Simulated scan of single mutants.
Amino acid sequence: MRENNKGVSWARFLEIFYDKYFPQCARDRKVSEFMELKQNNMAVAEHEAKFTELARFAPHVVDTDYKKARDFEGGLRDDILEKVNVLKLETDIEVLDQAIILEANIARQAKPTTDWKGGALPTLTFTGKELPPEGSDHSKPLYISVECKEKWIPVVLVDTGSAINVCPSRMAYVIGLKLADFAPTTQVIRGYDNTSREVMGTVRIKTQVSPV
């Protein structure tokens, strides 16, 4: 058998294999399953494994990095998808990396923490007088003032929908952070114009918050 099939490409081998051992009707069911694949209650890693397993039955759907990234991204859970798709990532590997980070962040936020002396993590609340005339339905940016490392930062943008909190390097130097304070990271930050930004590293700092 090997002598008779010398020079056969891998794609041709799979075609022969599927024709013999995998009826067309079974392959069609796998294609349909792939097209309808959603993460639902699966972990991101489980979803990726299922995606990879089924993608081989629909190579025409994922024959470029871009198409593969969009298909994988589209199957993610809504709370992860809404934060990943704004990054406009070009490969499924980049989407996978960011989705795993987001999944961990979401799980961490949902779990009560005991780091704060009061037991649960404090939340930000506002009275009607502190809100603009539109009330809670407004779409204006929210700013607070923060005390950090005995430095007062008067205007800090709050975005509870962000996957990460970004501290500009200039501000890091102002509050006294040094390069040695940052832990190495392979994370890549992309702007809305899809340009990448260099990341110094990650750091945890204690802050005291009050309204602007």
Score class of each variant (00 low, 15 high):
4 N>L: 12
4 N>M: 14
4 N>E: 14
7 G>L: 06
10 W>Q: 02
12 R>M: 08
14 L>R: 06
14 L>T: 03
19 D>P: 00
19 D>E: 00
19 D>M: 00
19 D>K: 03
19 D>F: 00
20 K>S: 00
20 K>D: 00
22 F>K: 09
22 F>N: 09
22 F>W: 08
23 P>Q: 01
25 C>P: 01
25 C>T: 07
26 A>P: 03
27 R>E: 09
28 D>V: 12
28 D>W: 06
28 D>A: 10
29 R>Q: 14
32 S>I: 04
36 E>N: 12
37 L>P: 00
44 V>A: 06
46 E>L: 02
47 H>M: 06
47 H>V: 02
53 E>R: 02
56 R>T: 09
57 F>H: 04
57 F>W: 02
58 A>G: 01
60 H>G: 13
63 D>I: 09
64 T>Q: 09
65 D>I: 05
68 K>F: 01
72 F>M: 07
73 E>L: 10
73 E>A: 10
76 L>S: 10
76 L>E: 08
80 I>L: 13
82 E>W: 15
92 D>R: 12
95 V>C: 01
97 D>G: 14
98 Q>R: 09
99 A>I: 01
101 I>T: 07
101 I>P: 01
102 L>R: 10
102 L>I: 14
103 E>Q: 08
108 R>L: 04
114 T>G: 11
116 W>K: 10
118 G>W: 15
118 G>D: 15
121 L>Y: 05
122 P>S: 07
126 F>P: 07
127 T>W: 14
129 K>C: 09
134 E>H: 06
136 S>E: 09
137 D>W: 02
137 D>N: 08
140 K>C: 14
143 Y>P: 09
145 S>C: 05
150 E>T: 13
151 K>F: 08
152 W>C: 13
154 P>S: 10
155 V>G: 15
160 T>Y: 05
162 S>W: 11
163 A>C: 13
167 C>H: 09
170 R>H: 15
176 G>D: 09
177 L>E: 01
180 A>W: 12
181 D>T: 07
182 F>N: 00
183 A>H: 00
184 P>H: 01
184 P>E: 02
186 T>M: 13
186 T>K: 15
186 T>A: 12
187 Q>G: 11
191 G>S: 04
194 N>P: 06
196 S>P: 14
198 E>G: 14
199 V>T: 15
200 M>K: 08
201 G>C: 06
202 T>P: 00
203 V>E: 03
209 V>M: 08
209 V>L: 14
212 V>H: 08
